[in-house]
Computed example of a mutant assay.
Amino acid sequence: MSAEAKLEILTRINRAGQHAEASFVRAPVGLSTRTRQDVVEQFAEYAAEYRANVIRVDYAGLAQAIQDRLDLCGSERVAIPQDLPAGWLPQGASFTADQAGVTDLTDIQSVITACAVAIAETGTVVLDHGPGQGRRALTLVPDHHICVVRESQVMDSLPEAVAQLKASVGLGLPLTWISGPSATSDIELSRVEGVHGPRVLDIMLVHEHPDGTA
């Protein structure tokens, strides 16, 4: 191909791209028209398909549900973000409040966090590492992650969730997208869990009244 022909092709591609960009109008993100119950039920179903353990609780039973999961996993060394709501935690249990300067988290067996938003369309939980979520390393190193998701945090679609995260992105907060426990497959498609993050993911899906209260 001659240089002139190549230039002509690239020029046409550039002009076509400029035209497409000028005519493209992004539609605004609309709110879901589905019922809150339908959205929450789909999230629970899809998250479970990713091998997450979805436990349906209310605020009154949250602390006991968390204790039950810790007992089941045999976790004695449990870390929490410093600002995790105290009312979520079992009475009398011992937890280690995460410290930003601590770099060795390999001794931690389980971690308990909140989340920023969840997505029914994909069964995904998103952390922006804001209040109650701790730093990113805290949710990637321990083998067991208990994530508390309030029903009001479940968005119907990915665009709705992204819109909810706009402020977090503007602040430069890191986003961790979690669809089930960490897993990978080799060339023979042998699934191995826990390579890049927690091997066990427990989602505490907390039921709320329409006004967001327990």
Rank of each mutant, 00 (worst) to 15 (best):
G180E: 10
A44P: 04
E208L: 08
A97G: 03
P28Y: 12
V162R: 12
L62G: 04
A100S: 12
V117A: 13
H209E: 14
A47W: 06
V111K: 02
D143G: 03
S182I: 05
E49T: 05
A22V: 08
G101S: 10
A5N: 13
Q42W: 00
V78Y: 05
R36C: 01
A137E: 15
T35H: 06
V126I: 15
Q164G: 11
A163W: 04
Q67L: 10
R136T: 14
T106W: 05
P90V: 05
D104A: 07
P181M: 11
D107G: 03
V195F: 02
H19D: 14
S152W: 12
R150A: 12
S168N: 12
D128K: 02
D104I: 02
G134R: 04
C73F: 11
D128E: 10
T176Q: 03
E188C: 05
A93F: 07
L138R: 08
T35Q: 11
A86Y: 00
R36I: 07
L70N: 01
A65E: 13
Q133C: 12
R12T: 15
T139F: 01
R36T: 14
R56S: 06
A16F: 10
A48R: 14
L62E: 05
G87M: 07
K6W: 05
G180K: 04
P142M: 02
D186T: 04
E151W: 09
L171R: 15
R136C: 05
H129S: 10
P131L: 13
V154Y: 01
A163C: 03
R135D: 11
I146A: 05
E8H: 05
G92P: 09
D156P: 09
T96S: 08
H209R: 14
T113V: 11
R56E: 13
W177L: 14
D104V: 07
Q109K: 06
D156M: 06
R191P: 00
A16P: 01
R150H: 08
T113P: 01
A137W: 04
A183M: 07
E76H: 07
H145I: 01
Q109R: 02
E151P: 00
V102C: 11
K6V: 14
I108T: 09
R56V: 12
T122S: 15
A116I: 02
T184V: 10
A86M: 08
S157Q: 08
G132Y: 08
L70T: 08
M155V: 01
I55R: 11
D128L: 03
W88R: 06
A63G: 09
D38Y: 00
E8Q: 12
V40L: 13
Q37M: 06
L10I: 13
L171S: 12
F95W: 10
T106V: 06
